[in-house]
Design a protein around this nucleic acid. Structure first.
Lengths: 245, 245
DNA sequence: CGGTGGGTTGAATGTATTCAATTCACGTGG
DNA sequence: CCACGTGAATTGAATACATTCAACCCACCG
């Protein structure tokens, strides 16, 4: 099992050249790791965060609760991500975080992070960069849910998650974990559950992908990418190669 | 007419307590100001940014262009905003920026900003915070365009823009500039232009607001807020008072 | 005076939603 | 061991709603 420090160093290193001193600084951080059950919340809308979370393994979701009771998923996070670096400077959380499947998350006090930032400004910049990459994903979600027709919308989401899973080395063969129910997919993409089902059925029928038992399987990457109008530039990953031919 | 430094200091000061040294550092920055005509682009999708932009006056939009030719507006920026701080660490812009009405924008090289960040870490943190506030607005846009019915969606957008305009002291009486055509409103909210028109007509008929000649007028703030399910917490502004009773 | 870009409206169309019913896998308790 | 309840996925039919398309108005400008 990987340690919190390792996944963080690997993930930051994906976007930033970390100096030896930065790596040492990170290794000195005191993470407290906790395990979460599927659908367990660990930061709630309205909380005043004092700790930052780091996804060590599993999958984490951000979501927003409306007065109407409707839930909107905003983003998903994989191993190495800092899902609430978004909360670093924020008085009160405007969204919640929960585990999707079983997940393990490491926590660190904001205070300690800020001390490390001060000592190693390049470390701070690398975390800042992470938050901007998150923001790029948010922007793409606006576009996806507002401007793309249902089939493309769903295909695009699968492309993004598969591509990111691959970058995080979570793809084995042509499949990766994706513990999302149809209802959750609907609350992500802004469609009713029946529509989710029918749209997914169409995608399956196209032979490009399949999803069952909490797993996503991509049979024809290029074709799925075409269906979703997916172009990975907005993810700003160094390694830009496609998941497979 | 306000100078670039002043609007930046005012805006950062809205969220962060800036030290005298930070203010001095900002005053030392060399901005180059330029005027833009309505709908003029100044950063294009695909550009490799080397300068950061600061909105001095007028209104700026981010947008994303799809292969289909469709345009999706992502966010709007007012005086004092740093619309492409999002591009600070990014190799290639995944979205463009354009003026909505006539606007004046000040530019500064990334290189110079980074030097200032290094000298005044609190200045860097205050800009970082700005980028996180942007991200919070992105998240709300996901929610808005995915989870709210058309009327609420439009009302919510007007609430946000009015609230922010007020925070930037751009509201006189019960009105502020909003140089958006119906087509642009549609490309923001993900609705067809006819729907925009009918929805807007309904809002007008409700007597809560009006919009014409590039101006937004809010007659019944509370009622409009209710229609849009708008709660300003996600804007994380210090001054939380409602625009008017 | 004719063209252009908004804005507005009605009617037809298409598509997602809602609602209800069914199946299946799973776990619990009789 | 079986009956039952639960949660998720699936499907059909009716409904509601946004979109498309077309026409028209208006202000503005060359």
């Amino acid at each position: 099992m990987e340690k919190a420090h390792d996944v963080l160093i690997r993930n930051l290193g994906e976007h930033t050249a970390l100096a030896q001193e930065d790596v040492a600084e990170i290794r000195g951080l005191t993470f407290v790791q906790r395990e979460f059950a599927p659908n367990e919340d660990f930061i709630r809308q309205g909380d005043e965060p004092e700790h930052s979370a780091l996804v060590v393994s599993g999958m984490i979701a951000r979501y927003r609760l409306l007065d109407s009771g409707r839930r909107q998923y905003l983003a998903f996070h994989l191993s190495g991500d800092l899902p609430d670096s978004q909360g670093l400077f924020i008085d009160q959380m405007d969204h919640g975080l929960c585990a999707l499947g079983p997940a393990s998350v490491a926590f660190i006090p904001h205070r300690e992070l800020f001390i490390a930032f001060r000592r190693r400004p390049t470390f701070a910049l690398s975390v800042w960069r992470e938050t901007l990459l998150d923001a790029a994903i948010f922007r793409e979600a606006i576009t996806n849910n507002s401007a793309r027709p249902m089939h493309a919308r769903m295909a695009h989401l699968f492309c993004e998650l598969f591509y990111r899973a691959r970058a995080a080395q979570l793809v084995r063969g042509n499949r990766c974990r994706l513990p999302l129910s149809l209802a959750q997919l609907g609350e992500t993409l802004g469609m009713a559950i029946a529509t989710v089902n029918r749209t997914l059925a169409d995608l399956r029928r196209s032979g490009t992908m399949d999803m069952h038992d909490g797993e996503l399987i991509v049979m024809k990457w290029r074709e799925l990418q075409r269906l979703g109008g997916f172009s990975p530039t907005y993810l700003h990953l160094k390694r830009q190669s496609p998941p497979h031919a």
